[in-house]
């Protein structure tokens, strides 16, 4: 029971991060490998504001989200859009996007190392235990999970009910046809990319309440988010949430029963299984 809940709580926060990446990839078709750094920046901000002014990380979210939105929008317009325009083929764009977002990720890590050094940073926020089904859990984890669940639910509803959400889903399914029904695909891609970045940064602020981060942990989260997106299926919110929970649970199981040093290996084992047996994701149809 203990493991189950710890795993689910971890998975819930993963879901939020992966949701951000999935929005970006699903709509703009650019795999953003600098996504994890956006998360770390979100976490850094929460840390800085908390240690400097005792600002609750839950309030920091409201600063982090708009800033990250603008930042990501700029990245898309200035750096990625020209690549989309010059690409001769899907393969070339993919290669360029991978290199660019990797480059960006390293630049951000480099700048953070420069500014803050390579130290781990953590703070103690709501570090009181709460009892669930007779076991103790950190209140910060539970609150983080609550935040993540709330945001995921909100995002899911927004995508399914609102006009803008509908347009985003239309582009995710078929950019060509979305254009035909009068959706401004480049504009929407930029917005979705920005929104995805904002969601991830918020996830970072939330995660920093209970995980220790340092300037170079971003890539680890990018990788996990990517694995989740692939497991859950591109552009699929339900799949992402399910995959995140599976990953959270899987990691917790391996960390408890085998070795905490093997969490990535566990994520990989899941990844391989998915690649071999359901490369289209949990709910996806066979690719045609």
């Amino acid at each position: 029971m203990d493991i189950l809940i710890t795993g689910l709580i971890l998975g819930g926060t993963y879901a939020l991060i992966a949701m951000g990446l999935n929005l970006q990839y699903g709509v703009s078709r650019i795999m953003n490998l600098a996504n994890g750094e956006m998360l770390v920046i979100g976490g850094f901000t929460a840390f800085a504001l908390y240690t400097a002014g005792q600002v609750s990380p839950l309030l920091t979210i409201f600063i982090v989200a708009p800033v990250a939105y603008v930042l990501n929008w700029l990245v898309y317009r200035i750096m990625l859009r020209p690549l989309v325009k010059r690409a001769k083929s899907r393969g070339m764009l993919e290669q360029d996007a991978i290199l660019t977002t990797f480059g960006l990720s390293f630049v951000m890590v480099g700048l953070m190392l420069w500014a803050f050094g390579g130290d781990y940073f953590s703070y103690s926020y709501l570090a009181r235990p709460v009892v669930i089904f007779g076991d103790n859990f950190g209140l910060n984890r539970v609150v983080a999970f609550g935040c993540a669940a709330l945001l995921c639910a909100g995002l899911y509803l927004w995508l399914n009910v609102s006009r803008a959400g509908m347009a985003i889903r239309a582009v995710a399914v078929s950019p060509e046809n979305a254009r035909l029904v009068g959706i401004d695909v480049p504009k929407l891609s930029a917005r979705a990319f920005a929104l995805g970045g904002a969601v991830t940064a918020v996830g970072g602020a939330v995660i920093s309440t209970f995980l220790t981060l340092d300037a170079s942990t971003g890539v680890m989260f990018t990788m996990k988010a990517l694995i989740i997106v692939i497991m859950g299926g591109v552009g699929d919110v339900r799949g992402t949430i399910l995959a995140a929970l599976v990953l959270g649970l899987g990691e917790t199981l391996v960390a408890t029963f085998i070795d905490p040093g093997l969490t990535l290996a566990a994520a990989y084992a899941l990844f391989i299984a998915i690649l071999l047996f359901r490369p289209q994701g949990f709910f996806g149809r066979k690719p045609t």
């Binding site: 991978i98 990788m223 990989y268």
Partner: peptide, 28 residues
């Protein structure tokens, strides 16, 4: 065999973590 049947993104992600995973397994 596991990844090259699929798109380039899958391949990059997979290879990105391969060194780290192998390191974890060897350390363990």
């Amino acid at each position: 065999l596991a990844t090259l049947r699929l798109s380039g993104v899958y391949f990059v992600i997979f290879t990105l973590g391969l060194a780290e995973m192998t390191r974890q397994v060897v350390t363990w």
